[in-house]
Simulated scan of single mutants.
Amino acid sequence: MKRVRRSLPQRFDFWEKEVGLSTPRDQAACGSCWSFPNVGTMEALNKHLTGDDTEFSEQYFVDCTFTYSGCAGGTANEGYKLTLMRQYMLSAADWPYTADCNIYQPCKFTKDIATFRRNALNKIWIQDYVPLSKNEEGLLEGLLTSPVSFGTQISGDLFSYSGGEFKDTSCASNPIPHAMLLVGYTEKTLRVKASYGTAFGDYGYINYVRGDRSLENCGFYNSAFMLLATYRRDVEYEYCNEGHPATYQACRDSCKAMNTKTKTGWDLAVIPTKYHDQVVVDKLAVDYPGLQTSDKFRFFWIGLQNQDRTETYTWVDEFTPANYLNISRNGAGNRYGLIDKTRASGLQKTR
């Protein structure tokens, strides 16, 4: 998929001022900084798309991401990777943050995750995370899509910050790995949401001086991600043409023929997330065990259209943006695990 560059405004405070962000929370003594920007981004996208201001649980990530405590640290996209496959989050109300890093207990929500019980992420799909260009412009462009989760180095000087403009001149000589959330910028500063509570800094935020050399020295631009999301709807898959080989048009006609007055929405398959990709792969494994790699099942018609033969793809279902194309991987554009080519048979979906 081709990404079109958008012109940058002189200042940008959309996420903080127009959408509204949750109050900065305190990670305390737990090394869970990575979970806070991931949660913050998903909260913001959820509120922007649906108006729902549910606060999500960092403690869920701490307890249910690894086979050890998330207080041991993680990357700036760790929570994104997990959510792409689960499409599940707990609310902060259901599982408050405790910062307990002394004793690790295995995730107690395995059954809830499997059945989507108490799923606070029930209005949107998380489609993909996209690594941004390793410069200021890349991060600012990312902000036009979502708040930007990034990893960097900080120094102990940050903990004495109490507001105003900030330069971390000691981060290269005394580096501490850290993850934070870029939420906006002015002509002079980059606005960052921290994870030390509202008593820290500028009511929980840091205003980094733009263009300062320390930002590059700190690795400020080296590991940053924007997040793609869309509205959630029920999706169901069946085989077109009763699973027999068909042309694209014959397959699509077969899908549409399944529409009735009481059950509508059937068309060529829309696969909005990696979770749905795995659903289809699992369906093949159950329905045709041992045959997924044969010629018959190597190719599938899916609901992607590129009628003008450009780099821009669209789904047959205009409701769902064609974000899940693995665009965060070099050379990608239409890869779907076992469903990565188009011929022979097909799947259909409903909403």
Results as ranks from 00 to 15, higher is better:
Asn102Leu: 14
Asp53Phe: 08
Ala120Lys: 07
Trp266Asn: 02
Cys107Trp: 15
Ile126Pro: 12
Gly51Lys: 05
Ala332Arg: 10
Ser69Tyr: 04
Gly51Thr: 02
His178Gln: 15
Lys296Gly: 15
Arg191Tyr: 07
Cys33Ala: 12
Pro131Gly: 01
Lys47Thr: 04
Phe297His: 14
Gly151Thr: 10
Gly265Ala: 12
Asn306Ser: 00
Phe109Trp: 13
Gln348Pro: 01
Gln249Asn: 14
Phe150Trp: 11
Gly346Trp: 01
Val286Ala: 04
Phe150Lys: 15
Lys47Ser: 07
Leu291Asp: 12
Ser195Trp: 04
Asn306Ala: 01
Ser328His: 13
Arg329Ala: 09
Leu325Tyr: 02
Asn306Trp: 00
Ala179Lys: 06
Asn330Gln: 15
Tyr185Pro: 11
Asp128Leu: 09
Asp308Val: 04
Glu187Met: 11
Gly219Thr: 02
Gly337Trp: 10
Lys134Pro: 04
Glu238Trp: 00
Glu187Tyr: 02
Gly331Thr: 07
Lys341Glu: 14
Phe319Ala: 15
Leu228Val: 09
Cys30Val: 12
Asp308Thr: 07
Gln105Ile: 06
Ile206Val: 15
Asp100Pro: 04
Arg233Leu: 05
Glu43Trp: 01
Tyr336Thr: 06
Met258Tyr: 13
Leu49Arg: 10
Glu43Gly: 01
Leu228Phe: 13
Thr293Ala: 12
His276Pro: 05
Thr41Gln: 03
Leu49Asn: 04
Val130Asn: 02
Thr293Asn: 15
Pro289Ala: 05
Leu347Ala: 11
Gly79Ile: 02
Pro24Val: 13
